[in-house]
């Protein structure tokens, strides 16, 4: 059997996740890795929304916030386990995306950007201001997922960093698998078609508003799961996770790595999550270097890092 691009992508991702710890100089890197994967989960959702369907969102951190605060609040107030809180957060995010998506996805381009921006700001303001529920700007503690204790009972001792590395890695692979399934399916083709030509897509019988809405809801669920994992790993959540800067960060990762490709966007998430950790040597120049990298990539590699590098590599191999 010949390997399809989907299987190659998943295999590359799997091998990278499994092999990377061999090169970790210290246990600290497990945490960095877990953080990369958690961001990459949200970014994979944005590949479906921005890369496939061509719809921008500058407010997806709002859904990250809903996922994160669900894991902080639901176990305390509703008495459900954190695992179900992840599902509850995802359901809430999907529901909100469904209701809000209908009117705002009628907008195009800048207008959609501004509308989603507003949505994200609204959610982060609620999280920051409803202090009696959310702890306000100082944030709130998040209950323990309980997985480490469970593993210890079974005789496995893992550090928190290791546990979250493997857990987030597994969720990322599952998320990438779903996104890659979608790419080459009737729904995925419809999304990419309405991205390419809205008018032609409609005359092909595609219900454009419905498909845009589905992409919006799916990507909201990805963001929500990302937020839940982040909260459960950090055991603390502040309104910043839902903030505008986090939304921009996620979109930048998606575009920098290669907006149409799942693997590319994960690559983007890796660079933008890991680089600040490396750049701490440069101290106060960290943001300048980061900004410079982004500008240069967009000028010289407008398709995003990974697709551009692959193209160059293939071009050379062909000669």
């Amino acid at each position: 059997m010949r390997l399809k691009p989907k299987h190659i992508s998943l295999l590359v991702l799997f091998v990278l996740i499994v092999m990377a710890p061999l090169f970790f100089p210290s246990g600290f890197y497990y945490r960095v890795g877990a953080l990369i994967f958690i961001n990459a989960i949200a970014v994979t959702g944005l590949v479906i929304l921005i890369g496939y369907a061509g719809q921008i969102s500058l407010g997806h951190a709002g859904f990250v916030g809903i996922g994160a605060y669900s894991c902080a609040l639901a176990p305390v107030h509703l008495g459900i386990s954190p695992v179900f809180a992840i599902a509850l957060g995802a359901a809430l995010s999907a529901g909100l995306a469904w209701i809000v998506g209908r009117p705002i996805l009628k907008l195009h381009g800048y207008y959609l950007g501004v509308a989603t921006l507003g949505l994200g700001i609204l959610i982060s303001m609620v999280l920051a201001n409803e202090a009696q529920w959310t702890g306000g700007p100082d944030g709130i503690a998040v209950p323990d997922l309980g997985l480490r204790g469970l593993l210890r009972d079974w005789g496995f001792r893992v550090s928190a960093g290791e546990l979250w590395y493997w857990l987030a890695g597994a969720v990322l692979i599952a998320g990438a698998w779903l996104a890659l399934n979608l790419f080459d399916s009737p729904t995925g083709r419809a999304l990419r078609a309405l991205h390419g030509s809205d008018v032609a897509a409609r005359t092909m019988g595609i219900d454009v508003p419905r498909h845009k809405l589905h992409a919006f809801v799916i990507s909201a669920v990805y963001a929500s799961v990302s937020g839940s994992l982040l909260a459960l790993m950090n055991r603390l959540v502040t309104p910043d996770v839902a903030g505008f800067m986090h939304s921009v960060h996620l979109v930048t990762m998606t575009v920098l790595g290669g907006v149409g490709s799942v693997l590319g966007a994960i690559f983007g998430a890796t660079i933008l999550t890991a680089l600040p950790q490396v750049l701490t040597v440069f101290h106060q120049y960290e943001h300048m270097v980061l900004g410079l990298v982004m500008i240069l990539v967009m000028i010289f590699m407008p398709d995003g890092l990974l697709p551009s590098l692959l193209k160059r590599f293939r071009g050379r191999a062909g000669k």
Binding site: A190, R192, A193, G196, S197, A201
Partner: peptide, 24 residues
């Protein structure tokens, strides 16, 4: 009004949308 970054095959596959589209 073609779908520029899709292959020719995929372009024509989109034309089958009504026959193949189901649930997401």
């Amino acid at each position: 009004q073609v779908f520029p970054s899709m292959t020719l095959l995929e372009n024509v596959m989109v034309g089958h949308h009504l026959q193949e589209a189901g649930a997401t």
